[in-house]
Simulated scan of single mutants.
Amino acid sequence: MTLQSIDKSLYQQRYKRVAIGLAVSLAVLSLSISTLLITLFGSSESGSNTGLNVIGVAVSVAILVFALQKLKHKPYFKEVAYVWALKQELNHINRHIHKIKAAAQEGDANAMIVLNFSYQGSEQLWQLDDNTLVMDELRVWKADLEELKQRYSVETSLEDYRRELLQNF
């Protein structure tokens, strides 16, 4: 994955629309499907149709996931889909972060490449989402990484990152 330049205001506007659309769609679909299931298979004798309601919600979620998979390639969803992919990539890195940091301390160039991507991606993501609470901490992490890169004479570039590098950790 490569980091892309994203228009923050356009991303935030589209993300809000997509989130509201998903919430409204989930509510309408869940109620509609649950009502249909209760009408067709429900029982007034047992008094509880919780199972049918759960099935209605599950079917609604499946429909929305399918729709999102189809829509995420449309130009309107470009920014939102990119941020979702970035979040997934950063989560994948964060599952191994302790091993990656330990390897970087020992001079592993691949670990430093992964950390560089993680820090740059996190900074972009936090700025897009206006989540600046840990930016000071991120600056410290980046400074620590720069120190390691100098100590071990390692050069890193965002273009060097690829998910396969995580297989070693």
Rank of each mutant, 00 (worst) to 15 (best):
I113D: 02
I97Q: 08
V83S: 09
R151K: 14
Q124S: 05
E106G: 00
L90V: 05
D108Q: 11
M112A: 08
N110F: 03
K149D: 03
S157G: 09
W126H: 10
L115Q: 01
A111R: 04
H96T: 07
E89A: 12
A103F: 09
K149G: 03
E146L: 11
L90Y: 07
S122M: 12
E89L: 04
I93Q: 08
N116L: 00
E155H: 13
N94M: 11
V154L: 03
Q88E: 14
Y152S: 10
A104V: 05
Y152M: 09
E137F: 07
D144V: 06
D108L: 08
R95G: 13
H98S: 15
I93P: 09
G121I: 02
D108I: 06
V140S: 08
Y119L: 15
K149Q: 11
W126V: 01
E137G: 03
S122P: 00
E123S: 07
N116S: 13
L133E: 15
M112S: 07
R95W: 12
A109M: 03
S153Y: 10
L90N: 07
R95N: 15
L145W: 11
M112H: 05
V83G: 10
Y152P: 09
L128M: 02
L90Q: 08
D130A: 02
M112C: 08
L125M: 13
L145P: 08
H92R: 15
E123K: 04
N110Y: 07
E147N: 14
A103R: 08
E89W: 01
V154T: 01
K99R: 02
F117T: 02
T156E: 07
A111E: 06
R139M: 11
G121R: 02
V114L: 04
I100F: 09
A102T: 12
L90W: 02
L133C: 00
L125N: 15
Y82T: 04
Q150M: 07
R95P: 00
L125G: 02
K149Y: 04
